[in-house]
Amino acid sequence: MSGDAERIRAHVEDCADCAEELGRLREAVHRLDGPPAAPAKGARRGADKVGRGRLMAAARAARTGHDAPAAHAAPYAAAVASLEALLRELDGTPARWGTPVVHDWDVQGTVAHLIAADEPLAERLGMLPVTRAEAGGTGDAAPWEVRWAARTEEVVAYEHTRPPTETAEAWWTQAHGLLDLPEARAEEPASLPTALMGKRLPVADHYVIRAFETWIHTRDIGRALGLTVPSPPPVHLQRLVALAVRIVDLALGDGTRPVLLGVEGAAGGDWVLGPAAEPVAAELVLDAVDLCLLVGGRLTPQEVSRGQAGDAAAAQHVLATAASLAWL
């Protein structure tokens, strides 16, 4: 065992959170890997070692130390490791890359979409584009939703001219490039605000958004392939939930009656949404994962399980606002 692996093992033995996460990752790898497949020609790594490599990479991302991502980037590191594990399932079955996933994207198109979705943060932080897809003429003055949709369409169309393994390689290169930046390794450089996708937030929050979207689309791919993708561990889900609640609160607008939102589970908490000076008009209780799926556009207000009391219209307004934020 290398010295690096020895340090990981020692840390996991002393850290309950990392031990729990490592257990989840082991379970996910066992479910997703199946029997070992023969290495594909031109694969970027030895396929016979990729399962162990993924597990160790994920453990390395979860540990403390100078090589580990900072807390704000750890959920993204884990989401990237999860998608890597899922794409490994496609080794030896190239036809499955064409499985329909979401919107009009197949598996390859969904991975290509993630390339396009990660690209604004990567470029803002000084990285070069990983795809040669030519940019269209929407212009910087167009609304971000228009520019985002156009860029996704360009990248998806371009990546479909290439082998799926090259699309996966491009996504992997960009994702790990983001995780290698100083903004992913330390809190101070990630504290500076920047405007991306219509939101001016600290860079740290944009890393959480990247984690959110990567997990949602990994889940989409898993469901399309008939595989279960674990939810983020509580320590990461807490960050996704806290950011989702903050963005929903900002989006509620004037005239909103305050609602006490309780999020259940280890990743949960209680928040008052709306004007703090007014009395609470309603109480709403949601599961942490359900809240994220609502904000991510994977559950509707009618589908989400909830506890509710008080002013039904005020509670419904919170649910409708959360659902309206979905762009995934």
Rank of each mutant, 00 (worst) to 15 (best):
H113K: 13
L192E: 12
V229K: 00
D104T: 14
E283N: 02
G65C: 03
H72Q: 12
G310L: 01
R44M: 06
A142W: 00
V50M: 02
S324K: 03
G136A: 13
C15R: 04
A142L: 06
A281C: 08
L243A: 02
D33Q: 10
V102N: 01
A74V: 12
G3D: 14
P234M: 03
R200F: 00
A157I: 00
P234R: 14
A276S: 14
L196P: 04
L284A: 15
G34N: 01
D311K: 00
G53M: 06
P182T: 07
D106F: 06
H72W: 06
L90T: 02
V130P: 06
R223T: 13
V203T: 06
H160N: 13
E188Q: 14
A79C: 12
E278K: 14
L55R: 03
A81F: 00
A116S: 12
R60H: 12
A175N: 04
W97C: 07
E278M: 06
H206D: 01
P35T: 11
A282M: 13
T152S: 00
P36T: 07
L293P: 04
V130D: 07
P202Y: 08
W171N: 03
A40E: 14
D33F: 08
A190D: 07
D17T: 15
P279Q: 10
G46W: 09
I115Y: 00
A133L: 04
